[in-house]
Design a protein around this nucleic acid. Sequence first.
DNA 1: CGAAAGCATGGAG
DNA 2: ACTCCATGCTTTC
Length: 905
Amino acid sequence: MGSKICMNSSCGTASTHEWKKGWPLRSGGFAHLCYRCGSAYEDSVYCDTFHLEESGWRECRLCGKRLHCGCIASKYLLELLDYGGVGCTSCANSSRLHSVRRIQTHGDEIPNGFSAMPMNNAGSSSVESKAVGDHVDERTLAQLCKIMEANECNLLPQSQRGDPNASLGQHRGEEAMCSVGEVGAGFSNSMQPYVRPPNFAQTDNARPALDIRDIHDSLSQPSLSMTLGGPSGNPNFVLPFSSGLAEGKEQSKMSSSFQQGQRSRPILPKPSKNGLATSSEVNKSMVPQARIARPPVEGRGKNHLLPRYWPRITDQELQQLSGDLKSTIVPLFEKVLSASDAGRIGRLVLPKACAEAYFPPISQSEGLPLRIQDVKGKEWTFQFRFWPNNNSRMYVLEGVTPCIQSMQLRAGDTVTFSRIDPGGKLVMGFRKATNSDTQEGQTSSLPNGAHSGETSNSGGIENLSTVSAYSGLFQTPKAGKDPLVNSLSEHLSLADGTISWGRGQNHGDGANEDPVQQPAVNAEKKRTRNIGSKSKRLLMHSEDALELRLTWEEAQDLLRPPPSVKPSIVTIEDHEFEEYDEPPVFGKRTIFAAQPSGGQEQWAQCDDCSKWRRLPVDVLLPPKWTCSDNVWDSSRCSCSASEEISPKELENLLRVGRDLKKRKILESPKLATEREPSGLDALASAAVLGDKMGDVGESSIGATTKHPRHRPGCTCIVCIQPPSGKGKHKPTCTCNVCMTVKRRFKTLMLRKKKRQSEREAEISQKDNNGHKDESELNDTRLDHSENEGSHSRIQAEVAETSTGQIDLNCHPNREDLQLEEQGLNMMSLVQAAGMPMENYIKQNGLPSLISEQQGSLGSHALSQANKENERHLSDEEFLASVGWEHDNRSDEGHKEPSLERNGLQ
DNA sequence: CGAAAGCATGGAG
DNA sequence: ACTCCATGCTTTC
């Protein structure tokens, strides 16, 4: 049997439903009423052209073209032909359409009190009349009336049609007449909640609300209807049914891809009894489905909606819903809540095109009250209005705060607007932003027992929350069109770029000019645009994003240089790059700790028994590692062997990792919002870390995490340098480190010379500046014997070196701020290390510190200040800083251990 | 004075 | 150049 087709071009419903029995016909029998739009036919309208499967798929019997009934692209399959037939747009077959006749308007068939209603149908009949007679049982009558009323204005019995102006005010007369289903129906100026009349027949001045549940109570099968067009009884408001999707290549393309996508998508599990899948069901069996933005159904206006507002409900969610609701859910549009949308003002800015396409037309700025149900079935009344704006309009929904709060939505979450057909009732769903704090509550927040004890209004809506649940759970990072997901993806890639690879270099250059960092800032700015671009707007620096960043960074931590492969180090403009012929490999994460004897050791956890095993410091483990792989300790190469480390020691060991992560989280906002940490920041971090590490003695974590690939065995220029106090390089040493250092030194000297000559040239031109420059030259040499290492002193000195001038205000907007932070960090560093600043300065010397950091700790980005400072270092200082023999320093060779030591003392 | 309402502004596409 | 829209600012209540 073919499906039944409504040939009302504004409806086009195809289903397997039994249609409603209508009024008696003079020719005998009863009218057959489309269950959805109420269009009347003399006979059932069967169409054998298409086979309608239970699953909702529809297949052309001739060409095999398949579409889902709920698919808005069904227009491409089903075409209402002028002569009243239905054809497949693919093969143009229409021959098997049963010949039917829409009921003509015959005066004696129109029950008293009903007015004839012209249809825009291109079919055989031009005028449709929904008539009610004594022969029709009351229930059918009521449903019919509801359906008709819901779909077409002015179709109420005149005796029962109240004066809209009386309740809505004169200036809203237009809108008041534009009741389509629940849209605009029953509103009053005072925004009193709409009270559905208990009985249609008793209604005097209020219009009966279309109740989806009522309709479907009498329907034995789920609706598999297809919407092709909307009723057009009211010239001012045409429901945005799809009709005319054939226009435009873009939509055609979307349709095509949509079909393909459907074929390959996994089928969702059947929801549990109440129509909701439990979270475990969802988690277990739901395969993430691509969240494809649906081309919107067509509403008023010719403007295409921006894709960002396209509803992204998946087809299966839609299918599920349609089945659950026994009606057709028509996703209209969605919007990511901005800060102001979710704020206390309670105004939700509606995309103009969406508002004009899917909401009732309003001519007055005051607009009209709009009743929208939320996912919990609660009905809200918002004021739908607009503000004049630049010869245009700005549409808003006012009074949304309670609803937003009810749904626990925040900026960044998405609200969805859908329509339930038949009836055109607006429904507001939502989708939580991925990984938002309340994400876990998504499923649990779903109403339980959706159908129990609720009013009839709630049934379908609660199922709509299924959409939300699914939608939330279906969020995948690949949902490329989701702004937030995109933002996270961006974040991810940024983390990759700025943290990992940026840090991976031994020498950064100017934090403020970091070419990697800069795009990060831009992208960050761009990313936040979605929910606010101004400073006071809510930033999306959620902890989740930070967590993601860190997690990615941690992932970088697992990247190891390919085994037995030494990088070639290339220096490009003083930036040294490790180059590997092979990509890095993933390794098991281990913890490095210091042995009591002074050396280092590595600890790894067995993947099977979770015991920790001590390993040589220089081994790299595969991602999966068990005790049986412990070839280094025959006594502990089995999971049965006891753990070597005591619980207390283990706790200390693990705490290092926790502290590290904690510290990263604390650092991250600064990373994200300002810049990569300067050398001093990193130094401070190292000091803090070192303080923590004091619990377990010297750990290599501080020496390895700044550059994730610096692991024992790493042969980069940093790691091959000797640790503190050991193995100083002779001036004649020609090792890689020394050669690099010499090369750098040479470059620095050249720069210095050049700079000096430039300065001299300036001096010759500007006599007045001569003295200043001279003093600058002197001042920029830091006197290590000086015990004036106060905070301000440090700032001043660094500032001088950063700008080449004494004036601290020379770069008020940049360096000063930065330096102030550096100074603060220095303070925190010293405090954390429990070491007097003056001793600190005395022992290490600021220039040395700075230059050391640009070598490794501040490996990703060297601040401009540091860079400049480097230029002013004396030869001796520079040599000292990089580890050549120098009297008062014993740890210059390897920077990180040096820092560790500083921090730990 | 605070909240709400209405309008203006400016960034982004 | 234009439109959209997020949100700030001003006015009104």
